[in-house]
Design a protein around this nucleic acid. Structure first.
Lengths: 195, 195
DNA sequence: TTGATATCTGAACACACGTTCAAATCAACC
DNA sequence: GGTTGATTTGAACGTGTGTTCAGATATCAA
């Protein structure tokens, strides 16, 4: 019978994911060796293979987990209301979610090209699903006459690029709080789509 | 005396830079070997070291060259006029310049962490100098009452993130021309900063 | 044609890589 | 306390890494 207590698998597994996440974000997937990850966990390299079939699967698992978290958290928070209210909610959600997971966000955007083609396809599908949520809000706003944009798809991509950009400069304890940053971006996005 | 004709250095040197640029952009600096670059040029790996002291210097040279081009081209195009006119010019310049150099742009944003600390510092300084050009325009617009932003620095970073985002989805020959893309972004940026 | 020099080859160096696996270790159950 | 099975070690495998360099090659000036 499998052990349920005292087993290390419940500890080592998450530790490996945490170490891989940190190192991939800091140095990049290709520049991090399995031995480095193992060393950070306090284990030999061979032990990693009890938790992942290979390095590629470890990267994919981190990215897939992040995208699932993103879409899951978004689904929970979905609100009704005017397009303006929904837009504000999306912006606030996006910024807070991303600021809380800088390493995951960094990897999700930087390591796409290190995914195998099949894995890349899966992540891209999730990313598009997330973008579609914003695009739907923008399109609803255009129909309602609240927003005026020449192209809803481009507006979507432009807004997301702008929002995700916060992760490149925001540091906790810096000049601005999360609340302030969120408010500033809500206003800028709102104006950029306004009539 | 150095040969001036028949010498391969005038050919091989640029070829190496072009191959490195393409491969770094496609696979990432850490995932590309000197032998791969040499193979693409049609030469043995050892020959590369007639043109670069090491792999790191090759990356830095590409990034430094790109930033110098960016700041040089910007300096040439500088215009006088109202903050609105200067903003429009900056947006148009940024989009066109970046769309014409997708590989350089990709590397300049993705491979920062693979620079040695000294090299990173130099590139960051150039990047900040470029950002300062936009920030000066925004500040002038705020003083003139043409723009209303809660924080000029954040507005600068938000706009640049939005603009640079085009390189992730734009493909020549796609649905929209460079002219159309530039016009769309000019309007969105203009509105996002407006009062 | 000869001598000089810029360029390139091809092999070698020391080391690191991802991955595998038999053997050792350890914790939980009977 | 002995047995079972999960977990880890530590060494090994084959391959690839960035870099160096003596020697070969190619192209110039004279």
């Amino acid at each position: 019978m499998a052990r349920t207590q005292g087993s290390h698998s419940g500890i080592t597994g998450p530790k490996i994911r945490a170490a891989a996440l940190r190192l991939f974000a800091e140095c990049g997937y290709a520049a991090v060796s399995m031995r480095q990850i193992a060393s950070e966990v306090g284990v030999q390299a061979g032990a990693l293979y009890n938790y992942t079939p290979d390095k590629q699967a470890l990267l994919f698992s981190l990215m897939k987990g992040h995208m699932d978290d993103l879409l899951g958290a978004r689904a929970e928070r979905q609100v009704e209301g005017s397009p303006e209210a929904q837009l504000r909610d999306f912006v606030d959600f996006h910024i807070r979610f991303h600021l809380q997971r800088p390493d995951e966000v960094f990897i999700a955007y930087m390591e796409l090209r290190n995914l195998s083609p099949e894995n890349f396809e899966k992540i891209e599908k999730l990313r598009r699903a997330y973008e579609d949520e914003l695009e739907a809000i923008i399109q609803a706003g255009v129909r309602a006459g609240a927003f005026v944009v020449p192209d809803a798809k481009i507006a979507t991509l432009a807004v997301i690029a702008m929002l995700t950009g916060v992760t490149t400069w925001y540091r906790p304890g810096g000049r601005l709080s999360e609340d302030e940053v969120s408010e500033i971006y809500c206003q800028m996005v709102r104006k950029s789509l306004g009539g």
